[in-house]
């Protein structure tokens, strides 16, 4: 049986009647949105699935359980390692050299002809806060694609991976590099005003970035 709906008050109905007609977008917003959609369609790889409408709690539980498990395993492993290490120090003059972790550079070698973005090994080793192995492979892969496209002057092709990176790693490890690539790609496509906006946003977000002079130069020379 369908329950009876309470009618809206005349005041509420009058307000909704005012809101009902869809206002037209300003031409600048419309043309920008359509240009972005065309660029995304042209790259051919940027389609994303519709996110599921699941409850928030359900998405937290498995992650929390996994994190707790990883922390517990890590603590146990560290305890074992520490115990073995102190036992070894009692019998041996020095510990054997620890194996080096694979550098990020091995995953993402610098591309020739790209003067904008420093190679990933320098990014990864830039500051104390950045771990050398903490950049997810997928994040690197997307940025590599974008860098490769920019390096071969396929600026439209760079926007697809940049958009996907924005969607999946909005505040990822390489967001600074991504935003710099965005400025270069937009400038390369001749979308000067968008490049300038992206450069302004970059400057506000990363005022001390080593990429800032290059970003400013690109933005100032964009058509």
């Amino acid at each position: 049986m369908i329950e009876e709906l309470p009618p809206l008050s005349p005041q509420a109905r009058a307000l909704l009647d005012r809101e009902r007609p869809i206002p037209s977008l300003p031409a600048s917003i419309r043309s920008r949105a359509l240009a972005r959609a065309h660029a995304a369609a042209a790259t051919g790889s940027a389609a994303i699935p519709v996110p599921p409408s699941r409850p928030v709690a359900a998405s937290w539980i498995p992650w929390a359980a996994a994190a707790a498990l990883v922390i517990a395993m890590g603590t146990a492993a560290a305890g074992i390692y520490h115990h073995r290490g102190s036992a070894a120090r009692d019998t041996a003059p020095s510990l054997p050299p620890r194996p080096e972790v694979a550098p990020v550079a091995a995953l993402a070698p610098a591309l020739p002809g790209d003067d904008l973005v420093p190679p990933f090994e320098s990014i990864a080793g830039e500051g104390p806060k950045r771990s050398r192995i903490a950049v997810p492979r997928e994040e690197l892969r997307l940025l590599k694609q974008a860098r490769a496209a920019v390096a071969r002057d396929d600026f439209g092709g760079a926007l697809g991976p940049i958009a996907e990176h924005t969607r999946r790693f909005r505040d990822g490890r390489l967001v600074e590099e991504r935003e710099a690539l965005r400025v270069k790609a937009l400038a390369g496509l001749g979308r000067g005003s968008e490049a300038s906006r992206a450069a302004t946003s970059f400057e506000a977000r990363f005022p001390k970035s080593v990429l800032l002079p290059t970003v400013r130069r690109i933005s100032s020379t964009a058509p």
Partner: peptide, 8 residues
């Protein structure tokens, strides 16, 4: 833009 990509 995300709506467009999902629609596509």
């Amino acid at each position: 833009q995300e709506v467009f990509l999902a629609l596509r």
